[in-house]
Design a protein around this nucleic acid. Structure first.
Lengths: 120, 120
DNA sequence: TCACTATACTGTATTAGTACAGTTTTGTCA
DNA sequence: TGACAAAACTGTACTAATACAGTATAGTGA
C-alpha cells in the first residue's frame, strides 16, 4: 500500500518510487510480482495515471522493475550499485547521439547481441 | 522561421526539431546563435512552452544546441557524425562495461527502445 | 474443441497548465 | 560611479488531460 503525504516537499512520483523501493527491499514485493497498473494505482491515489507512469519509468530506468506494454509492470529486484545508473545515463546519451548520427537501431541491437555472454 | 503543419502526422515537437536542424544545416543558424526563448516561440506558434522545451531538449541531447537555465538556448552546430565507427566502438566498450557490472541485456534493450525516434 | 473477433485491459506518447529556480537587466539610492 | 535590490527575463520540473498502440481474455460461431 502506497501512502502519499501532500505536506512532503518531495514530488508525488518520488514518493511513489520510494514506496515501492521500500516494499521491494523489505520483501513485501518480490521479483516477478506484478505492480498495480498505472490506472489502478492512479484511481486509488486519486491522481493522474501519468504521474504513476513517471514513477514506474523512474523505477525501470534504475533497474527495480520492468514494464511491458499491454502486460504490466513487474518487480525485478534490488538493482546493483548506483554506479550503474551513471553508466546507463552515459549509455542513453551515446545511444541518442548514434541515432542522431544516422546509425540505425538495428545496428545497435546487433552490437548489443555481439557483446559478452552473461546476464545479471 | 519555424512553420507547423497540423496535417503532418509527426508530433509538433519533432517538426520544431527538424525546423531548427534544417536552419543549422543550411547556415541560417550558426554556432553561437541564440534560439528564441521557449516562451517567445510558444507565443509565436500559439502552442504550450513545454512543447518547445521538449524540442530544445531533444536537440540538446543530440548535440545540436546547448541550453542554460536563466540564459537561453544556443546553437552548437552540426553534431559530429563522420566517425560513426568511433562512436560505435565507444558504444561497444560501454556495453561491455555495463554487462560486466551486472546490468542485464534486457535493461540495455529497454534503454535502446526508449530513445527518441523522431525523424526517419 | 478450435479459430476468430471483439473487448477490456495494459503501458506509452504528446501536449498543456502551472509553479519553481537561475541569470540578466533595470532602477534606485548613497 | 558603485552597490544593491527589484523585476523581467531565461530554462526546468511536476502534474494532468487525452489519444494511441500492444497484449490478453472473453465471447461467439463452426
Amino acid at each position: 500500500m502506497i501512502l502519499l503525504d501532500y505536506r512532503d516537499a518531495r514530488p508525488i512520483y518520488a514518493q511513489i518510487c520510494d514506496g515501492f523501493r521500500d516494499q521491494i527491499c523489505t520483501g513485501i514485493l518480490r521479483p516477478g510480482d506484478k505492480l498495480p497498473s498505472v490506472r489502478e494505482l492512479a484511481t486509488q491515489l486519486t491522481i493522474n495515471p501519468n504521474t504513476i507512469q513517471r514513477a514506474y519509468r523512474e523505477l525501470e530506468v534504475q533497474g527495480w522493475v520492468a514494464s511491458e506494454a499491454g502486460r504490466g509492470s513487474f518487480v525485478l529486484g534490488i538493482p546493483e550499485s548506483g554506479e550503474n545508473a551513471a553508466l546507463l545515463k552515459e549509455f542513453d546519451k551515446l545511444t541518442a547521439r548514434l541515432l542522431a548520427a544516422g546509425v540505425s537501431r538495428e545496428t545497435l541491437l546487433q552490437h548489443l547481441g555481439k557483446g559478452g555472454n552473461d546476464n545479471a
